[in-house]
């Protein structure tokens, strides 16, 4: 995936040289996609835009936490965006809780996955998805890419809720087998 490598290279330039033109290129590519992705997952436009901005701030300031050998640019940015969105939602809800609760300490939700040694290979996991029966692929796509709930998937597809649930269960269990079988072969 040359394109993915190209974007990884840009993040490395931001980390090592504070390269502004590399950052602008990343910004122009990813910020509108992040906004579109978050809106597709149900965020209102203003919130989607704020989170996209937050992710770009993180990219500018913490690009050195990005390890191109462990993840692609889009996976790294996806995680930052997911954690940022969760953190935002938590803060909104927290306003209704007792302010003395220890859970309200303003610690940001850390990016756990960045510390991990698992190698991300998007082409491989895509290939694993392609090996699923078409109807299982569809529910995984709807769940992951569109952020739809089980009942929304049932509504969109016209399938009974029970069928959607069992397809999702089968799909994730088969994905695990495919991914782990891949790992077992690929001893580096």
């Amino acid at each position: 995936m040359e394109r993915a490598q190209y974007f990884s290279g840009l993040i490395v330039k931001v980390a090592q040289e504070r390269d502004k033109s590399a950052f602008v290129e990343l910004f122009d590519h990813f910020a509108p996609r992040l906004k579109g992705f978050l809106m597709k997952q149900g965020a209102e436009e203003a919130l989607a835009e704020e989170i996209a901005q937050d992710v770009m701030v993180t990219l500018w300031r913490k690009a050195d936490l990005f390890d191109p050998s462990k993840s692609s640019a889009s996976t790294w940015l996806y995680r930052v965006a997911r954690n940022r969105r969760i953190d935002r939602l938590r803060r909104q809800r927290s306003a209704e809780l007792d302010p003395d609760e220890p859970s309200l300490q303003p610690t940001p939700l850390p990016d756990v996955a960045e510390e991990m040694d698992a190698r991300l290979r998007e082409d491989r996991v895509r290939a694993a998805l392609e090996k699923l029966p078409a109807e299982q692929q569809d529910v995984v796509r709807m769940a992951f890419f569109s952020g739809l709930s089980h009942s929304e998937i049932a509504e969109n597809s016209g399938l009974p809720l029970g069928t959607v649930k069992s397809r999702i269960r089968l799909a994730f269990s088969r994905l695990r087998h495919l991914i782990e079988a891949d790992e077992a072969i690929d001893v580096d």
Binding site: M39, S74, Y78
Partner: peptide, 23 residues
């Protein structure tokens, strides 16, 4: 970890393929 990392990579392809919306 491997399973979750792979699922995250899968979810991220949704971001990579997502239609841009201008800021």
């Amino acid at each position: 970890r491997t399973y979750v990392s792979s699922l995250e990579a899968l979810a991220a392809t949704g971001l990579a393929d997502s239609a841009p919306v201008a800021l």
